[in-house]
Amino acid sequence: MRESTVQVKGLVAGTVPFSAVDGTGSRYVIFLQGCGFDCLTCHNPGTIPSQPRGMRQVSVGSVLDRVIESAPFLTGVTITGGEPTMQPEFLEALLVALAEHPATAHLTRLLDSNGDAPAELWDQLIPLIDGVMLDVKVLDPERHFVLTGRGNRRVLASASRLAAKGVLHEVRLMLVPGINDADGELTRTAHWLLSLDPQVRVRVNAYRRHGTRACARHLLEVTDADRVRYREVLTAAGLRNLTIG
């Protein structure tokens, strides 16, 4: 590994040495600071600002050391955020370091991304990763803007590209009652995802208020009846590999 790789610095909002909910197996989760979206439903809004006051940069090497410590117990590493692609140089160096170090090379590497990244960046990242867990908020660009403050052209393009390269590990649908969970919307989304990958794995993340900001308190929480409907509608649309969270 080149000395310069481990010296690259970035902003890390936190780490979780053991997670069973961020991909297959036991995973070390690294939260990179900063996200280009400003989702109403964000459960971790502290990770949105790109340059939070008082946060100091850390090196790839220091993160790598922490992963090495936990490596005997791990299946892999999941890099999330924030939005990991917001710090492309740090992200790439971290992935290279994990892939090259003998103590971590066996660990799978997953990204948890909102997909708002350019094609060129994905082309650089894809050889370094085992898969991406991609958030798809809503297909309709206008409602996407309302929910996130940004358009979704790049998100949809990323989904196609990742599926074509065989690294679309899972698509996550964050559903909010009355906002993006109408039957027609769900069916359209399912059909589109199946057109990318007939075996696509989908996880519905049901909206909960816990952890969100005051501006999101007016949103309704998902009920058990909603969950039943989501399963019915998405299954009828042809999704087979479906988890409702």
Binding site: G14, T15, V16, P17, F18, S19
Partner: peptide, 16 residues
Amino acid sequence: KAAPGGTDQALAGPAG
């Protein structure tokens, strides 16, 4: 073990 939401903040300074 691994109650949701707990991050190990020791690596970096506090988020803004």
